[in-house]
Design a protein around this nucleic acid. Structure first.
Lengths: 216, 216, 216, 216
DNA sequence: AATGAATGAGGTTTCATTCAT
DNA sequence: AATGAATGAAACCTCATTCAT
């Protein structure tokens, strides 16, 4: 089982030893830190390696190329979000579950706002064929399942709707992040209005009168 | 007082002859074509110049640096959209005007889908130079004025709401674009649902109590 | 008489008309100003042309290349100095004449210190075969004649001594210039000490046995 | 605390392995060779790298920019001269010490005449970054200390005098170098005359009769 | 496993110079 | 005579990646 001879993403070798696992973690976190503190322009393999405290050679032992680091970071961040998102919405009420999902997204964004935003861009730029795209797909699928429970109609419909919902959430959240907003629940309320509106739900499960929209 | 001594963006010299005006146009269009056919990775000043059929030196006579080309392209595309967007919504009914704006956005996206999407990303990444940021601001302002007519309440409210609306529109539209959708009016309908939902309007355009939203 | 088809320096065409002469003057003065205010790094044919208020095309009508502009500037500045230097030292006493020459050099340096210093560097870098080298030679010759009158001995001796004297003067003066000195007569006194010392004159100018030096 | 994060001059990274120390040496020597054989005009980072037998990338691992290479070369050459200059003048007699210093300077110039001369120009033109300026300062300081021992008077006096002495030495020596002189001791004698004359010493420690000047 | 020196394609940008108008 | 648009060689420099140690 030769580990990823020349594939696109993911660690090049399976980190079976503790040290290896740690190293991969250091590298990914270093990537995160550089992205969020210095932005895309400072994100180079050399800067990541040096921030991680490893040599550039070591970095290439674990990642076949630069994109793979972004992929791994994306996977890590998304995994965390998915864990929240899938754990919480085990509510009986589907609308409540959707609300929880939105809340998880907002929470996630508030944790490391700039990182979250930049990763959304990276995801859009990454090579379309890569396994990295699976990551986005998994998020969409979670939403799709939710929409099912909400009684959404047709097949294709559902997928498109899920994509739109994800797009709405990301759109509003990233914009908020780039404007340094500070109130998560106000933000979540706005996202809810858009998403529930899109789905023609009134979201009143939480708020009895839709008129409450102005966050009043 | 030379017009662009050493600023960041925008043309470096005012094209005084017909020929140079054309040249600038060629360059900007070449940039557009490279972005939409080969993507961000192939977008270099050399590739732009050669696609435009001019020498690299000529390119730098008109643009002080690479970002300035993106800025000019962004300006050109946005100007076109703004023209549509400002011309159309002269409807008496504010909701109809908003619908028209959405339609204009969708139409714009369908014209050159990949370009529109990539430019949205570029706008978010660009080193935020004044004139380029103005471009985004102008779009937001158009929406702000519309929201005024819809009876939106507070100062800060309005700006945030406008940003959200723009984010929703871009989010859904770009996602649609990257999935090669083909039906503009269906897309517009979906965007409308999200936007009107966000604003707690029902989008039926006949709704008597539309103003209710701000009354809260 | 085709005017300088492709030679190195000097105006490309004989400015027979008033306007042409003016233009050449503008260009040369623009070159001077750029050198002294922005230094060598900003000295480009384009910047010179634009500072002179002429087009780059016009500049090349009068100068075959960039070095020619430096050459012309060098010639102009040296001519001015030579005029002073040759006019004044018509004193009967050769030592006084030398003192006057030194004073002229210092005065010249104080007029446009930075320019004078930069031109000394340019002179040293310019293509060795060019007529521009004549300029330096003329200065040396003036000094040579003075040394003659001072009774300097052998042929080769004289030329070497003249070169040394010029080097001493330039060396001290340029160093003073780059340290923003303000007192011309103090500077001249220092230069005199070095030059007279070099020539084994005591510089008192009243010395009875001035000739003693060569008597050895 | 990385040693040279983004400063102007000096090596960018500390060569930790033997190989890299060699590499730095190759690069600096290549720079020297290009300067002295082809002059300033041929001195490009590419030509230096290729002459050094390393890739351009390697060059930039050790030098943050072109000027830094000149700086390093300047430092290397000056260090060599300073070693000679500081070692020798441990004579009890200050005048003899000064003579030795002059001799060291002449010897240094005769080793690689063109290089020495061009470096003097570069030193004067370089963007005056701190460490590079220190180099020149150190030379001046050596002279200042000598002047102290010679009983030079006032504070400011001393510094100015030291600058002048250095300027005289460099001036004469560089001129001699550009005229391909061949006799070091004759050259040294001429420099001595100028310097001792400047300082109003008669230099007779070495030559009993000042009249000896005409090298008679 | 780890290191870090080395590579070099390719990116951005400048500027002396030409030439059609 | 003058203009200024256009040229393109060449400069500087970066950074993903390889490989000897």
């Amino acid at each position: 089982m030769p580990p990823h001879p020349k594939d696109r993403p993911g660690p090049r070798k399976d980190p079976k030893q503790v040290r290896s696992t740690e190293t991969v973690g250091f590298i990914v976190e270093a990537a995160a830190r550089i992205l969020e503190t210095q932005g895309h322009g400072a994100f180079s393999t050399n800067s990541v390696a040096s921030r991680a405290g490893v040599s550039i050679g070591t970095l290439y032992q674990y990642f076949p190329n630069k994109d793979a680091i972004v992929g791994a970071l994306l996977a890590r961040e998304t995994a965390q979000f998915l864990a929240d998102a899938e754990a919480a919405p085990q509510k009986s009420n589907a609308e409540d579950a959707l609300s929880d999902l939105i809340l998880a997204a907002v929470k996630h964004q508030f944790t490391r706002p700039r990182l979250a935003r930049l990763l959304d861009f990276e995801e859009a730029r990454l090579p379309l064929d890569a396994p990295t795209q699976d990551i986005g797909r998994r998020v969409t699928e979670v939403v799709e399942r939710l929409l099912d429970r909400l009684g959404l109609s047709g097949q294709g419909e559902r997928r498109v709707a899920a994509r739109d919902v994800v797009a709405i959430i990301k759109g509003i959240i990233d914009t908020a992040g780039s404007n340094a907003e500070a109130d998560p629940s106000a933000l979540a309320a706005r996202v809810r209005r858009a998403v529930f509106g899109y789905l023609s739900l009134d979201g009143s499960a939480k708020r009895d009168r839709a008129g409450a929209q102005s966050s009043a």
